[in-house]
Design a binder for these strands. Sequence first.
DNA 1: AACGTTCATGAGAATCATTCTCGCACAGTT
DNA 2: AACTGTGCGAGAATGATTCTCATGAACGTT
Lengths: 142, 142
Amino acid sequence: MTRPEPAEAASRRPTRQRSALLAVLSDTDGFRSAQELHALLRARGDGVGLATVYRTLQALTDQGQVDVVRNADGEATYRRCSTAHHHHLMCRSCGRTVELADSPVERWAARVADQHGFADVQHQLEVFGTCAACAAAREPQR
Amino acid sequence: MTRPEPAEAASRRPTRQRSALLAVLSDTDGFRSAQELHALLRARGDGVGLATVYRTLQALTDQGQVDVVRNADGEATYRRCSTAHHHHLMCRSCGRTVELADSPVERWAARVADQHGFADVQHQLEVFGTCAACAAAREPQR
DNA sequence: AACGTTCATGAGAATCATTCTCGCACAGTT
DNA sequence: AACTGTGCGAGAATGATTCTCATGAACGTT
Ligand SMILES: [Zn+2]
Ligand SMILES: [Zn+2]
Ligand SMILES: [Zn+2]
Ligand SMILES: [Zn+2]
């Protein structure tokens, strides 16, 4: 079996492709798909194989270094986020993202799950909207 | 404001395949993928083409008659739900689902979005856990 | 520095869910 | 029966993600 264990930590070899990917991730504020990141890397000069992009993204996700959110088309998009638990408020137009902590969902989810006899509770919450900049840019068209 | 209801899809021809699909959807409590529904229909006797399953599911979703949730594998899963806004508490083991209304998220999302200058706010929230039955069924194995 | 072991990489093939194509079937109408 | 509009479905096409496996890079040890 060559499959990494779930509880496995981050003892991976540092490579050019990994730092390149992390660099691109740090350069953008929003969530990007693996395909987009692959293209950005290529455009930047330090190309990285598509398979490696997916593989590395998977590893970073397991380590909690990046968050994953599926967009409307069902594609997985990634973003480097703080490691603490939080949710996102993102612009569906430009991708601008704000991390949100301390939501009332934390308590509520636990309580309601308990009321229904559910254990090992988890939740996923995302908030979408149009940021001020994008709203302003659209206004003139009226 | 967030419910642009053209109310045009109401005049669709009633067909055997559609009622069969609705029947299967009503028979299950959890979310099922298009592939699963297709298999269930076939097993039941009234088979329906895969393309039709997808097509009908899409139409029902547009009409708000079914909710869609992407599972961990990224597959779209469907469930016949109440038409009013709500969220779900579902068992990640057996799929049992409970509809949740009146969450504190409604207000919170609107407020926090406003604070950051975002408009046209929407949100998606799902709660996962292990239902009492599944937890009990797993206990004996210890 | 050279050597051998181990792990990461990447081109291309393979998966697999979802969508598209397009000829056929069927109900209702004249 | 002939005509028309719409839904159906087998199979092809699409596209993201994963897998295969030969090659190359990183590391610890001589
Ligand atoms: Zn924006
Ligand atoms: Zn939370
Ligand atoms: Zn259960
Ligand atoms: Zn809500």
